[in-house]
Amino acid sequence: MASILALYPGQGSQSPLMATDLYQASKKVRDLFQLAGEIAGRNLYALVSEGSEDDLKPTQASQFVITLANRSAQIRLEETGHTFVGHSGFSLGELSAYAGAGILDDTTLFTIVKRRSELMDEEARKAQQRYGELGMAAVIGLGFAAVNTILEEARLPGLYASNDNGPQQVVLSGLTESMLKAKDLLTEAGARRVIPLKVSGPFHTPFMQEATTGFRAFLDSLSFCDPTSLVLSSVDGSPIKDGEDAKDHLARQLAQPVRWTSVLGEVAALVQQTGAQVAEVGYGNVLCGLCKNSKLDISCIALGQETAIQTFGKEIRQ
């Protein structure tokens, strides 16, 4: 079977019915839903099978169901005989990467998801009460350095470039009022579109800084293992050396930008070295799109649904 270099999506990839096909196909996945639901204190299968997009949007819902979909897809790929040469996750998806590489067991994984989502939601609420309406938006057509320069020159309060997704895509995070003012400036500078995202807080910005200390203290109370395979952090694209390094990157991640362009540079080099198949292991194909638009030699396939996993397996066996 194939050797896979797994990329796990993060917040914003949630969708009704996600991972329900994997749930039906695998007892291990059903057991995972049961475990995650006990930690979350709610029926997560009912949430994804019956819930609307609005039901899945809140941070404490989306982070659980996205992580569930990511881990469920990896479980199904392992059950069908595939192996993994490396892992990386976009923001929240980094937790799934750590689980895939053996740094976290699933109980620890979802315990972290619970606390992380609570802290981020709490910090976002505080910021909104203090500063006004907050959110995130994707800027299509400009790179990270260009967007940073525009924001610095405009001196718009409470607005940051929070995700370096690729040479032509950056995510803004912060005050909605400043974001609306920035839209015209970004368009004038060459941005083709500025698109609001399905995320409920100003993540990966200084608005989250107060949550970092508490989150790190929480992580220090948990047991992390050293990785059994390669993990690239979305904080800076570097490989995770050990469990302590993993804790450090997870805590820093809350208030620092996602540097996905750096991750993809490392992924392209690994593909050349190993010949591994790059796959988005989780619901949707956002990360495959970022690979395609990266201008790097990366061929990514989406392996987050049962039909795709079965089709991929058949193609490999031929």
Rank of each mutant, 00 (worst) to 15 (best):
R130V: 03
S173H: 05
K181T: 06
L32W: 03
N70W: 03
K198H: 11
E122D: 15
R42S: 07
I103K: 04
V235R: 11
D105R: 07
L180S: 01
S173C: 09
I301H: 08
L22Y: 08
F90H: 15
A61R: 11
D31I: 06
C291K: 07
A46M: 00
T176A: 12
D121L: 12
K181R: 15
G141A: 03
L197G: 01
E280V: 03
L104I: 08
M1A: 11
A146Y: 00
L303M: 07
A161C: 12
Q129A: 11
A137C: 08
T59F: 12
Q60L: 00
T67C: 12
T149C: 00
V278R: 09
G37I: 00
I75W: 08
Q318L: 02
V286S: 08
I301A: 07
S52E: 14
L180R: 13
F203G: 07
G265R: 11
R71K: 12
H249I: 05
E210T: 13
G282L: 06
A189C: 03
S96M: 08
D31S: 15
P206C: 12
Q272E: 11
G12L: 00
K292I: 04
G81A: 13
A154N: 00
I150Y: 10
D21N: 03
S26F: 03
I140P: 05
L95I: 15
D106P: 01
Q318M: 10
E79N: 07
E266K: 15
A308S: 13
I66K: 07
F84K: 03
C291G: 02
A269M: 06
Q256K: 15
R259W: 02
P206S: 05
F215R: 02
L254Y: 04
